[in-house]
Design a binder for these strands. Sequence first.
DNA 1: CCAATATAGTTGACTAAGTCAACTATTTGC
DNA 2: GCAAATAGTTGACTTAGTCAACTATATTGG
Lengths: 325, 325
Amino acid sequence: MPVSNEQISEVRAFNRDYTRRIGVLSEGLLDSPYSLTEVRVMYEIAHRPGVMAAQLAGELGLDRGYLSRILKGFEAKGLLARATSAADARRRHLRLTPAGRRVFAPLERRSQRQVRSMLSGLDGSRRAALLEAMSVIRGAFSAPGGQAQVSLRTHRPGDMGWVVERHGALYFREYGWNEEFEALVAGITADFIRTLDPARERCWIAESTAGRRLGCIFLVAGESGTAKLRLLLVEPEARGLGLGRMLVSECVRFARAAGYERIVLWTQENLAAARHLYEQAGFTRTAREPHRSFGKDLVGETWQLELTGRRAAARHAAGGRSHAT
Amino acid sequence: MPVSNEQISEVRAFNRDYTRRIGVLSEGLLDSPYSLTEVRVMYEIAHRPGVMAAQLAGELGLDRGYLSRILKGFEAKGLLARATSAADARRRHLRLTPAGRRVFAPLERRSQRQVRSMLSGLDGSRRAALLEAMSVIRGAFSAPGGQAQVSLRTHRPGDMGWVVERHGALYFREYGWNEEFEALVAGITADFIRTLDPARERCWIAESTAGRRLGCIFLVAGESGTAKLRLLLVEPEARGLGLGRMLVSECVRFARAAGYERIVLWTQENLAAARHLYEQAGFTRTAREPHRSFGKDLVGETWQLELTGRRAAARHAAGGRSHAT
DNA sequence: CCAATATAGTTGACTAAGTCAACTATTTGC
DNA sequence: GCAAATAGTTGACTTAGTCAACTATATTGG
């Protein structure tokens, strides 16, 4: 997905904005006999006793000679103790002395007071949003390679509402379906919870490592031997990553394991991406019928996947569509 | 709302994290004959032609003498033009020359490339979340006094799902109610949409200026002359601000206007804050009955507010609770 | 009207923060 | 066993920025 110039501008504006804010917080620390760099060094040693200078230099982006002088200055003032590493005589473990902690503690408290003052200027709503946003930004950069790792889990409290909300909002935005659709989904989720047979029915939620829900799918029991696949959804920004296939695959796997003979599903002709997924998973269309729902003229389609026997497995392995013989 | 130590720690951790990231972006700029401070100065002049040095010094936190030398250096290289202000001869308007723009343009492009590279390392899901989070952080600090302004609106697509999600998640977290409750709420919202009479039934969503949903309340038609108040909820971080009272007041006002004779509601004994709101709005408890629901032993309570006649209005004006006569 | 004060910008002298490179001591890998 | 790499130190130096005193101009108050 290409990066837009608008997105670039937003990040740079944020960086300028936040650089000023961090600058203001940092200036508060300068009201001390220690420079900002010294305080940063002290902070890391306080929170990671035993850390070594090479680590600090690397992580804080400091010249090794410069850091050495800072540490020597701390040691000279009795704030720091250095112990040669048993494992590698080149290395020294760094620790604040009790005197060092006494010097550091008020700096820590001052910093905490500044942040407390900043946060208390925000009411509950904005503050919660701020903290969540910070967590999101840190999370966005924390996964290796920046690729969202998505895992599937079963449902927990709040998920039904999310399913309803996302279906309602997205289908309205993408297809113009009105609130009848959201009501339908709400009803499906209510029934799912009320009549759930965990051995044979399930909801899967796709969730990123940052805790964002990115997709869902349901399997519910139908008439004898038949399961129903329902409410497949993938968030727009998570599309194209194989997430839909993952959801459908897991659903089919579970249905086999639960002993169903077939899976049926009802979709609409205009949901091209979904239909493609079903096709690739081996489903075939068994019925097709125009109807008017959700404020739209639609064409409903019923699709089906046979689960039993070698023939079903072979047809699936052949890529879904079998030739007539 | 007091600031917790955990919240303070989260902000400081974010600041440390993001300072490193901004540092990496800034270092990219240093691959030029200009220092970071010089580039910042150049940036501001490029984007605000005519700006004056005193403004820049103030906003960028620079020593006036130091800035003067930087500007003199730019002028000496033919990158900057200074014009004495017609309004105040002490002041000089600053503008980049064409040569200055030619020097600045590649720096701007390099910065844009860096951000593009950073963003393109994130897939669609994480990137969208990141940009939204940055917008939230900037927005959190931008409102005067930091007080969220909240308005009420009627429902739109996605809202029913939000109502279900928030009820499910919050009541689970705060009271341990299981998914039966979420299913109940899903059913209520499905029925609301399916049978909505807009002249006599309504859902209100409380929304902040930042677009966050902060609360909700429903009024639905009951038996003849009776309205039902349902699904009052206020987000934890929006509590204590009068939002609950606002929602209940609007609900009661609408019910009067729609011609109902009374409003009834069903709540649980342990929902103390809600009961207090109903009490203050003039509701009286008419029934009380233990029951087991949502995985809990609860005590359900029915409350009622008479809307008709002077007697109802007088009793309300007297503070809700009327004396027996 | 004018002296005192404040503001905008400049310059000289200086300090603080940090860089660069060469050094010693130790470890690693061939 | 030894060359190369790493951890840490030190001398010399550069860069970034500060501090205070200056000139020019505007504002204020008596």
